[in-house]
Amino acid sequence: MVKTVIVVRDLIKRYGDLVAVDGVSFEVYENEIFGIVGPNGAGKTTTVECLEGLRIPSGGFIRVLDLEPKADGYKLRQLIGIQLQEGKFPDRIKAREALELFAALYSRSLPAGPLLEKVGLLDKADGYFDNLSGGQKQRLSIALALVNDPQVVFFDELTTGLDPQARRAMWGMVSSTREAGKTVILVTHFMEEAERLCDRVAIVDRGRIVALDTPANLIRSIDGGLRISFSVDDSSVVAQLENIDRCRLAVSNRDIAIQCADGRVVGEVIRILGDNDCNFHDFTVSKPTLEDVFLSITGKEMRE
């Protein structure tokens, strides 16, 4: 039996006339990485800040580790780790000092040294926050989120603004946080990140959850299991390609994209190209991504 660590029912958060979170319900199971994804302004951060007790919901029911974030806030904050979106620290605080400061705020905490080592900052322990790179700052904020050895950790836009290499390093740390037995809530607007890391993903748009499942199931749920794309020198083959069953063809100039449910179509396309002695370039077969899921559900492109 999987243990449920977070229960959210009909969560609503209004700011005046603006409804930031509009009836969100979900559960998070122990030791999973639960993703909350969606475009900027979808209500992701507001939702998790209600769970963290940093915002008071306008309505709905929340339990985190069987605690109500508002009434049992003090107790709850001992048990959760928080990394805030765009959260920073004073310029002149040293990495080790920041960890020691937060360690003193919790009744139970881990020593600074091993934590810094874990996030690869041991050589920067005595460096000022100001002098750390973007990736190092985020690594420190991970260490700070883990300083009380929490059961549930919230990461909010952990990798935004980082270069690909630093982003990949963050991903490793999120995975190892889960391997250490913790439950992770990951808020991101990078679909690729959610797809790679999360066990289950809630896709949020305009304050509502529009889909919730494992990344694989979400991707399987949309039409067009495969996407074939290539360009041709001579577009006379298009007529024959149009005759292939079970697929959608999109042609723009000499670029051709085929959405199909079935891998057999790939062979058929290649056969047609070969039979016509047609010269083609950049032939790629790709699986749809969560990005395509979002597009197919909301009819909108995810914007950065």
């Binding site: 940093l54 001992q78 765009e86 920073k88 004073p90 705020l105 919790y106």
Partner: peptide, 18 residues
């Protein structure tokens, strides 16, 4: 104002301190 802007106050509030 500075600590509020960089969300340091908020981060402190997210720990068990009144």
């Amino acid at each position: 104002v500075h600590y509020r802007k960089i969300k340091f106050l908020k981060r402190l509030k997210g720990s068990p301190v009144t």
